[in-house]
């Protein structure tokens, strides 16, 4: 049986007859068709095809070697203090772009360690510093409770921690010189803040960061300026992923942020997902939304590949 030939955006040829299921979702054009496509499959997303068509990365094959190292290290944080960080990278020599991950309000937890390894799996030097270290050690959710009681970690401290991790990634011999920043929840807010207050990051991904828009009475010595007021200074392209049912940030707040980004002519892409609320990537929480999460991750990979010159040298 001859395979189907499918062309997407005129530049990708896919010879895998499994990959024709997604033509509406990916706007795939079927050029020649030798197998009838069942009606029920026409609007379904084929993630294999999606990944292959979107990416410059080589698709994994069962005869490929793949390896990574993942470990706790110590890096410089704010004010030069040493902080623990979880670091993962592919085992080969690269070069690879880097990504700094800012963990969410629940703390420096298992999801963030997994996600750090996920970035390494996709060909990044990935580091997630413990931005709660100044509050002591313990089980992540206990540390997070301590931070909550203390009114959070200050914006200045987070910026300092991120600069330390940025410098660490750029100093590595495997680095291609490009570094992105990624965060969810409060970490999403901090991604935007850091991308505005510093230079050196090449791309930023804010996943449902609340309190980018803040009222005057919400400002505190730890949070003296609403991040949206830094928009003029945004120093790199920004990807934002949000849920329509989220209240922090609410769709109205995201719209305000979008207006501000347009006002200053910034390069950005915001995606507002229907039927999703806060934290729809978190497979271990009730807010997980499978379809939106898969699409969101694909957008993250596309975005970082575009701006960080990701290649497959794993």
């Amino acid at each position: 049986m001859p395979p189907l030939r499918v062309v997407r955006r005129g530049d990708v040829t896919c010879m895998n007859d499994l990959n024709v299921f997604s033509h509406e979702h990916l706007q795939v054009k079927i050029v020649s068709e030798s197998i009838p496509i069942p009606e029920e499959r026409l609007n379904k997303t084929c993630f294999l095809c999606s990944r292959q068509a979107r990416s410059n990365m080589q698709q994994y094959r069962t005869d490929m070697y793949e390896g990574m190292i993942a470990e706790t290290i110590t890096v410089s944080g704010h004010d030069g203090t040493a902080v623990n960080a979880y670091f993962a990278r592919p085992l080969s020599s690269g070069p690879f772009p880097g990504v700094v991950l800012i963990h969410h309000a629940p703390g420096w937890d298992e999801w963030y360690r997994e996600t750090t390894r996920k970035f390494a799996h996709h060909g990044y030097l990935a580091i997630s510093p413990n931005i709660y270290q100044q509050f002591g050690h313990g089980v992540p959710e206990d540390v997070a409770a301590r931070v909550r009681a203390a009114g959070g970690v200050s914006d200045d401290d987070v910026v300092g921690d991120m600069m330390g991790s940025l410098g660490y990634l750029k100093s590595l011999p495997q680095s291609n010189g490009k570094v992105g920043i990624f965060g969810t929840c409060s970490g999403g807010r901090q991604v935007f803040l850091v991308a505005c207050r510093t230079k050196g990051f090449d791309a930023a991904v804010d996943c449902w960061g609340g309190r980018v828009v803040m009222s005057q009475q919400d400002l505190t010595p730890k949070y003296p300026v609403a991040p949206i007021d830094y928009t003029r200074d945004l120093s790199c392209p920004l990807l934002g992923l949000f849920g329509e049912e989220d209240q922090s940030p609410s769709p109205q707040q995201v719209a305000l942020h979008e207006q501000e980004l347009k006002k200053y002519g910034k390069t950005f892409a915001f995606h507002m997902y229907p039927k999703a609320g806060h934290g729809f990537f978190y497979y271990n929480r009730p807010g997980y939304r499978q379809e939106q999460a898969v699409d969101g991750w694909n957008k993250v990979w596309d975005f970082f590949e575009k701006y960080l010159e990701t290649s497959d040298k794993r």
Partner: peptide, 9 residues
């Protein structure tokens, strides 16, 4: 601390 709404007593 996504909402920042915290009361201590």
């Amino acid at each position: 601390m996504c909402t920042g709404i915290v009361e201590n007593t």
